Structure formats: C-alpha cells, structure tokens
Simulated scan of single mutants.
Amino acid sequence: MSGYFLPIGLVVAFLIAWFLPEPGSALQQMGIIPWMVVTIFLVNGYQTVLSQMPLSGKLWTTAIVAILINLLISPFLGLAAASLLALPSAAAIGLIITATVPSTLSSGIVLTQLAGGDGIKALFLTILLNLVGIFTIPFILPAVLDNVGTLDLSPWPLLKQLLLIVLLPFVIGMLVRRMLQFSPRHWLIRYLPSSCVITTVWISISASSETLREISLLLIVNITIAALLLHGALIALCLASRRLYHPDRAEWLALLFTASQKTLPVAIGILAALNQPIGVALVACILFHFMQLLVDSLLAARLVRSAAEPDTA
C-alpha cells in the first residue's frame, strides 16, 4: 500500500483543489508551502544515520557520476527538451526547474531495492545529491532560465532559501534523533514526507486553479513528451556511464534510480519562491513526477526479471 500512497494522494489532491480551491488558496496565502519542505527534510535528517554510509570502493566515482548527470548536465537537457517541444515559457520554467533539482527522497531508494540494487548506496547518493544541489541550483538555474527570457533570478536569495528549507532542517533532524527514541521506521515518520508532498501539491494547485483550467490538452501532451524525453535522456546517461567505469550491478542500480529521478517538493519550493503564478509550471513538475514513477516502476520490474541473466556489461 505504501508504494501507492503518494500517486493516489496526488490524484486526490488534484481533484480536491480543482473542485474546492478556496481552502488551499487560503493556506497558500499563509505561506505554508516552505514549511512542508522543511518538514520533509527534517524527517529525512531524522531517518539518516551517517555511520551506515558505505564510503569506500568505487562509490566515490559513482557519486561524481551522479552529480554530473543529476545536477550539472540535467538542467541543460531540460532546456533542450523544452525547446524541442516549443513549450511556452511557463511550462518550460517548470520543466527546467524540475531538471535542476536533485533526486527524489524516497522512491529512488525503494525502486533500487525492488530492482535488486544496493539500498544503502542509493540512500547515500540521495543524501549527497540533495545536499550538493543546495549549492548548484542557485547558480545553474538562473543561467539556464536566462535562455527562456522571462525571469530575472538572483542566485543569492535562492541559495539562502535552500539553506533554510533543506540543509538546516536536515541537520536539525539528525541532531534530534540523538535525543529521541522514536523509531524512524514508525508509520507516522514513513508517511509524513509523502503527506507533505500531497499537501504542497494541493495548496499549489488550489492557488493556481484558474490558470490550470485554461491549459489545453495539446499542451499537456507536449509537456508529457518533454518529460519523457528528459527522463529518458537521464536514464541513457546512466546506462552509458556503466560502460565507462564498470561498477557492480547493485551499485549501478543505485546510480540509475537516483541520478535519473527528480524531487517534487524542492521543485515546488523553488516555484513558490518565484512569487508569480505557477499553475502551468506546476503541471510540468507533477507530470514529470508521474512519468518518472511510471517509467522507473516498469524498468525496475524488467531488471528484476533479468537479474538471473549473466552480466555481460
């Protein structure tokens, strides 16, 4: 059931926001969204035990490859996909922001384990990408969005925002774990981050409901195709990297399902910081999230079936 909680919750959030946007719009005016992101990373820090991190072998090479693919190359792939599909500026902004943010906080780890990969290494890569992303996003995102030509985005306020809503809560969460005996595997801890993502989407869609009603089916199709192109390109880079430095299968699967994925709450947090209507951009973020879950779930199932085959890579 836990694997379906987030996608089902996102659909329910969309329906409620579509038909009854007033409560969510009121919460958006109160500035709730950044606190949802803070809660997610507070819980993520609470669940993290640095002593469990396997800091040896080729993992540092894998980490460098993950940073290159997920944080440095991906934003330009997002720009290329948006340009290829000739997306309007609002949709392009959403796709590019999605391409710039780091890996998902949970689904990449879960899919790594389902495919027979190393979950601990996936956790390490996820934490690393999210922490390094704090310092890459503020400088890469304005440079890439400059090609869209609609935003004048300064890196320093964005860096401050990410430090406050990502790094600080993460560190506090790790410190709190030293003082509390509450199990990090408790159902409340496990479901709280996903609940915050669902709440964030509900609030964001509610606040942009009028804009969303004007989106055409053709635009939704084009955004979906652009999202699939972006995610497919990231997967292709992960596949190519295996040929270059030959990690073991379990570690490579950790790379595949972390470096190719993107986190929704950080993308929404950045959109909220832009202080402008985010309806169409939010649709691009959510569609990418759904597409990556669909594609990677099918990919994980395929990899499980092929696990017994000889590794000829």
Rank of each mutant, 00 (worst) to 15 (best):
L6S: 03
I16H: 01
L27F: 08
L27R: 02
M30N: 09
G31K: 01
I32C: 00
I33E: 10
P34W: 04
P34G: 05
W35C: 01
M36V: 11
L42I: 06
L42N: 04
N44T: 10
Y46M: 05
Y46D: 04
Q47N: 00
S51C: 03
Q52G: 06
P54H: 04
L59H: 07
L59F: 08
W60N: 10
I67E: 08
I67Y: 08
L68K: 08
L68P: 08
N70I: 05
L71T: 10
F76M: 02
A80K: 09
A81K: 08
A82N: 02
A82C: 01
L84K: 07
L85H: 03
A91Q: 04
T98W: 01
V101Q: 00
P102I: 00
S103C: 02
S103P: 01
T104A: 05
V110G: 08
T112N: 02
Q113D: 12
Q113G: 13
L114W: 13
D118Q: 12
F124M: 11
T126I: 05
I127F: 04
L129F: 05
L129Q: 10
G133M: 09
T136Q: 12
T136A: 09
I137C: 06
I140K: 12
A143N: 13
N147M: 12
N147T: 14
N147I: 10
G149P: 11
D152L: 13
S154N: 14
W156F: 15
P157K: 06
L158H: 04
L159F: 12
L164D: 07
V166Y: 07
L167H: 05
P169A: 00
V171G: 00
G173M: 04
R178F: 07
M179T: 12
P184T: 03
L188D: 00
L192V: 03
V197H: 01
V197W: 01
T199H: 08
T199R: 08
V201A: 06
I203H: 01
I205Q: 04
S206A: 10
S208D: 13
S209D: 09
L212K: 07
I225V: 15
L229F: 12
G232Y: 09
L239Q: 15
A240Y: 14
R242M: 14
R243T: 12
R243G: 14
L244E: 06
Y245H: 10
P247V: 10
L255M: 09
A259C: 04
K262D: 02
T263D: 03
V266C: 07
I268C: 07
A273S: 15
N275I: 05
I278Q: 12
V283D: 02
H289N: 02
M291W: 14
Q292S: 03
L293N: 12
S297W: 14
A301T: 13
A301E: 13
V304R: 15
A307G: 06
P310A: 09
A313K: 15
